[in-house]
Design a protein around this nucleic acid. Sequence first.
RNA 1: GGCCCCAUAGUCUAGCGGUCAGGACGUUGCCCUCUCACGGCAAUAACACGGGUUCGAAUCCCGUUGGGGCUGCCA
Length: 492
Amino acid sequence: MIKTRFAPSPTGFLHIGGVRTALFNYLFAKHSGGKFVLRIEDTDLERSLKEYEKDIIDSLNWLGINSDEEAVHQSKRFDIYRSYCGRLTTNRHAYNCYCSEELLEEDRNRLISEGKKPMYVGRCRNLKPEEENPAKPHVVRFKVERGDNLTTGFRDMIRDQYVVVSNNEIDDFVIMRADGVPTYNFAVVIDDALMNITHIIRGDDHISNTPKQVLIYNALGFTPPEFAHVSMILGEDGKRLSKRHGATSVKHYKNGGFLPEALNNYLVRLGWSYGNEEIFSMEDMIKHFSLKNINRSSAVFNMEKLLWLNSHYIKSSPPERLINMINDMDVDAGVKDANGKRTRKRRLKIEAGDKTASLIEALKPRSKTLREMKEKMHFYLYDDITYNGSLLSGFNFNDGENLNKEVSFLNEFMLFLESLPDNSGVNLIKERFNSFLSGHNWTLKEKAMIIRIALTGEKVSPGIYEVIYALGKKRSGGRILKFIDFIHNYLF
RNA sequence: GGCCCCAUAGUCUAGCGGUCAGGACGUUGCCCUCUCACGGCAAUAACACGGGUUCGAAUCCCGUUGGGGCUGCCA
């Protein structure tokens, strides 16, 4: 049975690049009815944090990339690594190295200045038994077999070719630190072997590590798994994606109003394709995923396309779900007051209901993110909307006749509102409003804008019927009065 | 520096010896229209370069250039 894993180290929030490798591993396993598991590689005791681990797990959950087994923690398996390390030293596939870090540093500098490779000089490679002193601080190094024609390699499933390097290119790398903690290259091998991982899908920054790992598999008598190295995700500047490029962690996207399926869909198409298809549900991805359709070259992260997918999924989500997700965003949409200051009221949770649902329906095609959607709901969520003079440009209120005409229209509109049945739906409002206008020989084109501005305080909003419906008779009426008030205060 | 990986429009990609080099995002124009969007239609733009192999190369080989990665008692 196929079994894959995602093995992040909890030294940072779950990164977008990590999500893609997790997704690929997940899809590959699920495609063949196999298992996908999570392994926390927390051997870097300095930098690993529980907070990050929690973020990784929460983020994967949010994305629907779930582990089939309880997550394995490397920090709880130090005894295992030690015992395998012992096997290697007794096999003479590894040796104790007593060189101090300072000495190593000197070696390195000297070799570099001589224009040579900064590899371990081999001082402790062939120590006599009497020279050993395990009580002294030491690391354990893997003893790479030397010889001009010796090579080590592996087949990469994505490139469908062998990557082979000369053993002379491979240093006698450390597998066990002085404090008894295994290094990455050692712990991965032990765990992947013991966990029966059949396929390793990971970033191609691990290509050069793989020969080292193959050496360990062989020395321990394990059969190496299949390897598939996926290219990196680059920022717009062509450099490897990092914090410098802005939002790189999943939580940024969650709180920024992205839907998990948009992120998954975007990421799966970064490097993988299925003909000309662009839209994939999780089921679609599982159904069609295969390693041979993964591209070899690196991909540049493109926010525009992610936004396109996000708006696509917003459009196809029911309002109730959208409301829940908006309320779930950690950092709120950050509603600003007239002075551009954020206010406390942004904590307010949106209540579900017919009017809210209708408004959200109207806002769907206008919002690329949920954050944007919530900002556009401001006029609906809060009553303290403000007007400013620039809203009046275009009405030519300096002309007194014009002013009187519009104000009397607004007054007529008040009467119209009062005449509306209390529980009017959008369709009835539309019908009544249109006959109200034509009864006075007005057109929608002439009159929609001033109502929009009065009701929302904005020149841009959803359709006018939806706005009236969402606000209701009472709130709408209040705003008309407030607006008339504003006009007079502003002009006189 | 050494070693490894990669190379189709601005971006993601299809292509796997013979195609008018296809799709998507973006951009531009038009249509729709109460604003803004959505939507519809159309347009724009690519095989990095140089050698081979072949009747024929985006496709195969070599080199150049460019980009990325590794070169830690990080992962």
